[in-house]
Simulated assay, not measured.
Amino acid sequence: MKSPCIENCVFDGKSGWCRGCGRTKPECRSWKKAQPHQQRKIAAELPRRLAKLRAAQS
């Protein structure tokens, strides 16, 4: 699975999620070594995380 990174890495201090892709630092670091099912699980969470980050910013 392709990385969801959009090369805009800024981590939110409260949630720990990247404001660009929605992953945590450990998820970013382990992405290439993660099993496909782990990548899919993380990827499924990203839209919800990003929506929460956007809502918190407004």
Score class of each variant (00 low, 15 high):
residue 32 K to Q: 12
residue 5 C to L: 03
residue 15 S to T: 06
residue 9 C to Y: 08
residue 9 C to W: 08
residue 44 A to Q: 13
residue 16 G to W: 01
residue 4 P to D: 05
residue 4 P to G: 05
residue 25 K to L: 00
residue 58 S to K: 14
residue 30 S to K: 09
residue 18 C to K: 03
residue 6 I to L: 08
residue 25 K to H: 03
residue 42 I to D: 08
residue 46 L to C: 09
residue 57 Q to Y: 01
residue 13 G to S: 10
residue 40 R to P: 07
residue 29 R to S: 13
residue 19 R to K: 13
residue 15 S to N: 05
residue 9 C to G: 12
residue 3 S to K: 05
residue 9 C to D: 11
residue 16 G to I: 03
residue 19 R to A: 11
residue 15 S to A: 06
residue 30 S to R: 10
residue 51 A to F: 05
residue 41 K to N: 14
residue 12 D to W: 07
residue 1 M to I: 08
residue 32 K to N: 11
residue 12 D to E: 08
residue 51 A to Y: 07
residue 17 W to S: 09
residue 10 V to H: 14
residue 56 A to M: 08
residue 36 P to T: 08
residue 21 C to D: 01
residue 33 K to N: 15
residue 31 W to P: 00
residue 7 E to N: 12
residue 13 G to R: 12
residue 33 K to F: 13
residue 56 A to E: 10
residue 16 G to N: 01
residue 16 G to K: 02
residue 21 C to K: 00
residue 10 V to G: 12
residue 28 C to G: 12
residue 52 K to I: 08
residue 53 L to W: 04
residue 6 I to D: 07
residue 23 R to T: 00
residue 47 P to D: 15
residue 27 E to W: 04
residue 58 S to E: 12
residue 47 P to S: 14
residue 1 M to H: 10
residue 57 Q to S: 06
residue 38 Q to I: 13
residue 5 C to T: 05
residue 13 G to Q: 13
residue 42 I to S: 10
residue 54 R to N: 03
residue 21 C to A: 03
residue 5 C to E: 06
residue 30 S to N: 09
residue 24 T to G: 10
residue 6 I to W: 03
residue 36 P to D: 11
residue 10 V to C: 13
residue 12 D to M: 07
residue 42 I to V: 14
residue 30 S to W: 01
residue 6 I to F: 06
residue 21 C to T: 06
residue 54 R to D: 06
residue 13 G to K: 12
residue 31 W to C: 05
residue 26 P to L: 01
residue 2 K to T: 02
